[in-house]
Design a protein around this nucleic acid. Structure first.
Lengths: 145, 145
DNA sequence: CGATCTGTAGTCAATATGACTACGAATAAC
DNA sequence: GTTATTCGTAGTCATATTGACTACAGATCG
């Protein structure tokens, strides 16, 4: 189980925090790209679901870009996680032999377990809002950069 | 965040449940392969860490194979999960621009969040033992197989 | 010895992930 | 209107992960 190689949640949190920090003006996907170090197209693709959920707004054209449309204090990270997870299973599932009773039982148990684990993650992330990240203790700048 | 494509935990749980069900004799990786529907080599690779942790034992030769060496009632699934996870992050991380303060702050927050999420998952899985899977309500056989 | 099984290296195909190019459509400034 | 900016999205490509599969050495039992 080498961890997920998927950075969507991390990028989403990063971008939202960034937007919360520059409240008042819009930030382009190019600007967000520089801070996150991922491709601007990828930024736009990650932000798509967040816009659909009403967390951010985007506008094309000069002085366009992305803006937060929700109070950072009222945005728990669980919301972001759920939007990025989009119902996908947390625990990987296999495809056991359907004619094996043990296989069917384990499979059913794993599916139900997955919901519970997703719930546990949600509950844990519920306790932290975007605003908490904004006021978090800043890390020191790395030396020699 | 398309879920993990990794089935190690699922296979491990499946195999352990299977072994708990045939207590008394050893099951070969070929037999386990049939039930789980994964390659026998993969089964052996998944079981490696579980053996190292003392959950199972293996013996080569005729009538050899794998045996559970621990009471299923005393084996919480969290143990299995931790062994398969092996310290890997649960939330994917990105590599933000180190010269950006927001980036550093978010990065640090995500790392700490990851521990908390892993802890939440562990706590949830702690509540279920291998034995609970053994006595779980069996699913009905799928029709037409 | 010979059959059976594990242990492990190594190859391969399928899939996931993101970087990147490209271009159309929307918007603002002039 | 014209031009510059920025989003929206399709599509390609390199890389990494995953797990199937082959192969074979070593252990064990009859």
């Amino acid at each position: 189980m080498a961890g997920p190689t998927n950075t969507r949640f991390a990028v989403a949190v990063h971008v939202l925090t960034y937007l919360a920090g520059v409240e008042g003006r819009a930030a382009s996907s190019d600007e967000l790209s520089s801070s996150t170090n991922v491709n601007p197209v990828y930024v736009r693709r990650v932000l798509g679901p967040l816009r659909a959920a009403g967390l951010v707004r985007s506008r094309p054209g000069p002085h366009g870009g992305w803006e937060l449309t929700i109070d950072a204090r009222r945005l728990p990270l669980s919301r972001v996680w759920q939007l990025m997870q989009d119902g996908h299973p947390v625990l990987g599932l296999h495809g056991p032999d359907p004619s094996c009773a043990v296989g069917r039982r384990v499979q059913a148990a794993l599916v139900s377990l997955d919901s519970r684990v997703a719930g546990a993650i949600t509950a844990e992330l519920e306790r932290l809002t975007l605003h908490d990240l904004l006021v978090a203790e800043p890390s020191p700048a790395p030396p020699g950069v």
